[in-house]
Design a protein around this nucleic acid. Sequence first.
DNA 1: CGATGGTGTGAACGCGCATTCACATTGTTT
DNA 2: AAACAATGTGAATGCGCGTTCACACCATCG
Lengths: 199, 199
Amino acid sequence: MASEKQNTEIRQEQIAVAALKIIGRHGTRALNVVRIAGIVGLVPSAIYRHFGGKDDVIDAVLELVRKRLRANVAAVAAESRDPLEALRLLVDRHITFLCENDGVSTLIFSDQVYSGPKKRKVRIYGVINDYLQEITKLVRDGQEKLFIRSDLEPAAIAVMLLGLVQSPAILWHLSEGTFAVQSQTEQAWQVFERAIRGN
Amino acid sequence: MASEKQNTEIRQEQIAVAALKIIGRHGTRALNVVRIAGIVGLVPSAIYRHFGGKDDVIDAVLELVRKRLRANVAAVAAESRDPLEALRLLVDRHITFLCENDGVSTLIFSDQVYSGPKKRKVRIYGVINDYLQEITKLVRDGQEKLFIRSDLEPAAIAVMLLGLVQSPAILWHLSEGTFAVQSQTEQAWQVFERAIRGN
DNA sequence: CGATGGTGTGAACGCGCATTCACATTGTTT
DNA sequence: AAACAATGTGAATGCGCGTTCACACCATCG
């Protein structure tokens, strides 16, 4: 019944993806090595061939999230013609990302965060800050090109944008998909855009 | 070393408060009967005189949160002269509430939510919806009195308001109090108010 | 061909923690 | 005063789960 041998790098990737999937579907509490191993097709102890322990796996998941967030920003920057449109596209992508991976929200608040090494909290803050930083760049760019009012701090706009999406996402997955996340985000974006658009 | 006997109702209150405090300071993972009992001044097994189990304790914490959120809305409604001012006061109160009780944010996303009985998720959704409902009332009132644009759905405004506060709160407690939550909320409110204020 | 290192396996250990139970204490009712 | 219900105590139980370890397999290198 032995699984085929795989390179550690591949396994690490598989394990991180599996972990994120578990967190998304069943919450961080359901994240245990048995389940992870099950998805990857390994025996629990095999996990320790590729990671020092559960904590390291969680760190890997965080890096995965960081990558995907970065990829989203890069994508919208490429697709759009102006920064304001880019922000709108980012809102769409971000909400989709959060809805498809409930785990992202839960991981950030997870007890795993607070129980783990203190570095954990710092690391999560870093991931979010990275993301905010990139959004801030978009905003600043929009201000320079006069698409966005320049009497507002770019960083503050970025945080607002995050909040715009976060609440609907929470409500969506608490409501088991009942909450009209699409409509809510749509309206919120319009209000938001009117408030920040350059005159 | 025996504690004085107390009425079950009093104990239930004490236990819920203790639990919320633990969640806030150390995360939901640190929420165990030993710790709760320690704070209340009881022996672990005594908890079971007042609650059926840990799950019931968590439910009690949720009710505690519901009460406090309701109290906040009632307070600002009483303090303010117009609905728009009420909303601004509510933002202040809500951010304070979230910062003082980190536990509220963590509890909502907690694995405990997803692991517990399915009713748990519904219950949390209910708590938030209650709160949203009350905010929506304020908004609608503001629209009728022409303080708020009436071409916007009251419920959508309410959700936006929540998002306005939530992100800063998250960043604040991830950053260990470094993040300038006050300044952020201030700016966000101004942008938001300009967007929704009746012409 | 033998050695070595990387990967997978199954069993076992140990800890944290929720829960239970028999017993003690206190307050109230009859 | 006796009986009973409510509350508090300490010990014991049992489970989930992270982690470790000795062993097996297999590729690559010398």
